[in-house]
Write a protein that binds this DNA or RNA. Structure first.
Lengths: 205, 205
DNA sequence: CGGCTGTTGTGATATCGGTCACATTGTATC
DNA sequence: GATACAATGTGACCGATATCACAACAGCCG
């Protein structure tokens, strides 16, 4: 696979080293990639597919934090790999997904040797940290209607489509809400001409 | 000031370099150290005092994310400094505070040269990231009564006292709630024998 | 003391969102 | 078409919390 195109900033030496040492892994849609409390032994770069990162509540509820797309990396796995500790999140493949796993032993070395890797790691931390902050914003300052709008927009951005193929139940789960609430809010959005509702599909207008 | 005791893991060369290049700054209690949107030109290490890190909503509301104590560093300032971008948070000195400001130009160099600095930065990222995750937990999965308990416990831990010298209004602001709600919840906690209420002071039992 | 100001207590009311019960509709399968 | 199942619509109800109005109280200063 021509994965280098996803990371154009990487230096040739870095690419070669990763090619030698990293392991590629595949996950089917719906498969759990990482579970809360699990030990992390490699940093993960996304080559293909989409990953959902969840936080789990004690009561069994799930809460979607953000997505990871090809060309991005899991900040949590990086931090955990470097420190050999456990993760506090759950990662699920939303589509069939290919990951490049960088063994933990390599991390310090890459960090010291390759400026482009160092920059990449810092960049990854920053964008995940910012996303986490905007998640806090959302639940701290916004009602469910605004959070739903944000959710739909983000989903549309991610898939680059105007149509969102999700059931109301799936959306409710991601927002840690209930199906009826989401249905009602979507109806209101339809009345305000923001969306058109179909079965298993929401169309943004 | 004998600041090295706060960072016992730092190598001698690192300490010396910081001593030469870093600038110490003082802030009075209540002073704003960093404002949303402000440009960051140094990473901040806390030497003395307490800093509150807030996220601001559009409507003017504030939301307390976490505290920084002596021996800790501001992850946001580090990331922003390395990337020369703006912060998305507000930092306020809760007590009179002393900071050690590491100029941005030094960051890459320290990172490459001193293993103990590299470890410190990674450790800082990780703990702030985890704290942010537990903030998400709190507001996503818990009602105000549990959040209030968490808030009081955290405050007591921070000050290492059983008594919390805050008005109900201040607590409400930090939790982005309203004074009446906090008063009522505190009353309930008092009835359950968890606290004793006084004027401008709450006593944990 | 009397008045001012900030803190806390309390009831009434409104809204949002969660939950339950059940109806309706769309799609697939036989 | 008949059946079954999943998705969606809808009304009733309730608890959590925000908001308003106002009372009670404590501390400070003239």
């Amino acid at each position: 696979m021509n994965w280098q195109a996803l990371f154009p900033q990487f230096e040739p030496g870095l690419i070669k080293l990763i090619e030698q040492e990293a392991v590629q892994r595949s996950f089917k849609a719906g498969e759990v990639i990482m579970r809360t409390g699990q030990y992390i032994k490699s940093a993960a770069l996304v080559l293909k597919g989409q990953i959902k990162i969840y936080r789990e509540g004690q009561d069994g509820g799930e809460f979607l934090i953000y997505y990871l797309a090809p060309g991005q990396a899991c900040a949590v796995s990086m931090i955990c790999a470097i420190q050999s500790t456990t993760s506090e999140i759950t990662a699920i493949a939303e589509e069939d997904t290919e990951l490049l796993m960088i063994p933990v032993q390599l991390m310090d070395d890459l960090m010291n040797t390759y400026k482009s890797w160092y920059q990449f790691v810092i960049q990854t931390y920053r964008s995940r940290f910012d996303e986490l902050l905007s998640v806090v914003d959302n639940i701290a300052f916004h009602n469910m209607d605004e959070r739903l709008e944000f959710y739909l927009k983000r989903y549309a951005d991610k898939t680059e489509k105007r149509s969102i193929e999700l059931s109301h139940q799936q959306i409710a789960d991601d927002l840690n809400s209930s199906r009826e609430v989401i249905s009602r809010l979507l109806k209101k959005m339809e009345q305000r001409n923001m969306v058109k509702l179909h079965r298993n599909m929401i169309e943004l207008v």
